[in-house]
Simulated assay, not measured.
Amino acid sequence: MNQPIGGGSALAPPPPRSPRSSASGRNKMAAPVEFFCWAGGWGLPSVDPPCLAVLAYARFTGAPLKVHKVSSPWRSPSGTLPALKTPDEGVLSDPQQIITYLRKQRFNADYDLSARQGADTLAFVSLLQEKLLPVLIHTFWVDAKNYVELTRKWYAEAIPFPLNFFLPGRMQKQQLERLQTVCGENCLENEEELEKELYREARECLTLLSQRLGQQKFFFGDSPASLDAVVFSHLAPLLKAKLPNAKIQQHLKSLPNLCNYCTSILSLYFPWDEGDPPPPVPKSASSDGSESEEEPHKRRNQVLSVLVGLLAMVGYALLTGIVSVQKQGPGTGGRRAIALDEEEEEEEEE
């Protein structure tokens, strides 16, 4: 949920026809490229919609990705999630740019679509951005009960100390700004009215998606397209998360074809992925003495964690009075010294 896929530009029309995953496409991308995404939870391979969209698109097309499921954006080469580390275009962080890159490598989920279906893709992606994305932000990041008991709780438990103290709050602030961009700067002044409007439009959007899908396996027949990756990334978290306040989730569950759609994609394309972070693996050096590939930025993260931890402890000590800064008299030449309150220090140690 770092940057919902609806936040960027709409999916571009399908490029000139090329095999969905042809031999030439596979040769062009012989070695898997590295993809960094949020770890899984709630029965999903990733809890973050943009990450989920890219994972689904890659599975639909068979694009070879070396996936790193991480619990902090600082473990990404770009400092954000998702991130695709490419050999020729650097690091891509926007979900649409990543999908476009995979298309250029001839992993094109929209190869078989007609011009009319391509237009429908653009229309439905725009609909999701305008009607469903805002309610997802509100449900997970604005609704106080959901945020405290589900969203913040998951990220605080997943993100390593001491980053878990401030990253969830910073992410929430980013999502609030995103919602204001979509709905207007003053939209949060009357949250009750905002919630009523968002949920009304989201219910209409879900009902329209249900009618469009009908009894089909995917939105354009028996094979998944890029639209399916985007729709799945929006619906699956809403369906699978154990939301304390589940208003919009209840409406989604009243549409059985959309529920079966999400369940089918999970079972077909992520059958071995339980959606939970993998158990910790013992750290060991490789034969050449380099660090594990699963932690390409381990040393940087350790240094940053130590620095943040030290700053947090010093700040806490100053705020609570354990450490105070005093100015000495003229006899010391105006030098500043740190005085420790020994009694308070002993109490802290007990």
Rank of each mutant, 00 (worst) to 15 (best):
D110E: 10
N245W: 04
P32G: 06
G333Q: 01
S46R: 01
E193D: 11
E350C: 06
Q216H: 11
P87F: 14
M313K: 13
S287W: 11
S305L: 15
V231K: 03
A30T: 05
S72L: 12
H234G: 02
N186I: 00
N190H: 09
Q216Y: 08
P73S: 08
V33C: 06
R300P: 00
P82D: 07
S284Q: 14
A285P: 00
D222K: 13
Q96P: 00
L268Q: 12
F140S: 01
G79A: 05
P50I: 04
D143G: 01
F220V: 03
E348G: 07
N164E: 04
S287G: 10
P330K: 12
S292H: 10
A10Y: 03
R26C: 03
E195M: 05
L52T: 01
G275N: 03
V182L: 14
Y316T: 13
L44V: 06
A312H: 06
A10L: 15
W272E: 13
T86W: 09
S286L: 15
L163S: 08
G41Q: 05
A158P: 02
Q216E: 09
R59H: 12
P280S: 11
F35W: 07
G275P: 02
L188V: 01
G40Y: 02
I98M: 14
G329T: 03
Y155H: 12
L304D: 08
V135Q: 00
E191H: 01
P134T: 00
L252W: 06
Q117T: 10
Q129M: 04
L133P: 00
K298E: 14
L198S: 03
Q180Y: 01
I159E: 06
S264K: 09
Y269T: 03
L209Q: 05
E345C: 13
A30W: 10
S21E: 04
H251Q: 04
S305W: 11
Q302D: 14
D120Q: 15
F161D: 12
P330H: 08
F165M: 06
A83V: 07
E201I: 00
A225M: 04
A144R: 10
A56T: 13
P15C: 08
L235A: 04
G289H: 10
L167D: 05
H251W: 08
